[in-house]
């Protein structure tokens, strides 16, 4: 499996403040890796270090085989970046904004129309970018980041502040991009987003990776005490444990058709995070 990004013991200090303690993580080709952590955990700082916009205090970071401290502009022809404050030229149209970056990245301008259609911005093509809604602007920025069909796409909280339906459109697009071979490094503090999109997640807290793996694996790792939640016919709820006594009760309830719904109570990423760090994600 090709590793596109390798971080080894990355430390970043801002004066006295330690933003990243000793961060080690890899991005494999073709996967979506999620960086999940609350505000201030160091997600944006990590993206900036990998993409050469900031230099680490110590540790090694490699992106596409190059030391991130030594990368030059040419690396940006192979990666796309969407940050939380990616700017657009408000006074230029959606199309003109993209045409500028298409020229810079030596991409045929004819690809613009197709991408706009794909994110549902065809009708806004001639509209000034400053007049777009937040969700539309985010989609414009996303199109700009994928114009040149990058090998790695960096997304810093791509759906933060967007309504659920726009967020879902973006999720679908990201899954499509992945199926076309783009590797994605995304940060989020939304655990549903991470669960839905990511092949692997790293739980980040105060500049350290506290857990790492496939979302399901992580959840199962903490499923030490299996429990089931039942909604009974009389609308009461009941939690049963995985022991002989409770399982017999469960079997009786099922046989007598008193169970309306039945759920296993494995932990979510959110509860794992809470358990590991003692704090929530929001």
């Amino acid at each position: 499996m090709t590793q596109l990004i390798t971080l080894h013991n990355i430390r970043k200090e801002f004066g006295e403040k330690v933003a990243l303690a000793e961060l080690s993580i890899n991005l494999h080709e073709g996967e979506i890796l999620g960086f999940l952590g609350p505000s201030g955990a160091g997600k944006t700082t990590t993206i900036k270090i990998i993409t050469g916009q900031l230099h680490q205090t110590s540790g090694e970071a490699e992106v596409l085989g190059k030391d991130s401290r030594k990368i030059d502009e040419s690396i940006y022809r192979q990666i796309g970046i969407v940050t939380d404050n990616s700017g657009v030229y408000d006074e230029f149209s959606v199309y003109d904004n993209l045409a500028l970056f298409a020229s810079i990245l030596q991409v045929d301008k004819s690809t613009i129309d197709g991408l706009l259609a794909r994110v549902g911005l065809s009708a806004e093509k001639k509209q000034a970018a400053g007049k777009l809604s937040k969700g539309q602007k985010q989609r414009l920025v996303l199109v700009r980041a994928i114009l040149h069909n990058p090998r790695i796409l960096f997304l810093d909280e791509p759906t933060s502040g967007l309504d659920p339906s726009t967020a879902k459109d973006i999720h679908d697009l990201l899954l499509e991009l992945k199926s076309e071979g783009t590797s994605i490094f995304l940060t989020t503090h939304n655990m549903e987003e991470a669960t839905r999109l990511c092949d692997r997640v790293a739980l980040l807290n105060e500049g350290r990776v506290v857990e790492e793996g496939a979302p399901l694996d992580i959840c199962l790792r903490y499923n030490t005490e299996k429990k089931y939640e039942l909604l009974l016919s009389d609308k009461s709820t009941l939690v049963l444990s995985h022991n002989k006594h409770d399982l017999q009760a469960l079997s009786d309830l099922l046989n007598s058709d008193q169970v309306e719904t039945l759920h296993s109570l494995e932990p979510s990423l959110e509860s794992v995070f809470l358990k590991v760090t003692g704090r929530g994600l929001q």
Partner: peptide, 11 residues
């Protein structure tokens, strides 16, 4: 307007 960053991270 954060467009300088956008240019610089587009090669």
């Amino acid at each position: 307007k954060h467009t300088l960053r956008a240019l610089m991270t587009s090669s």
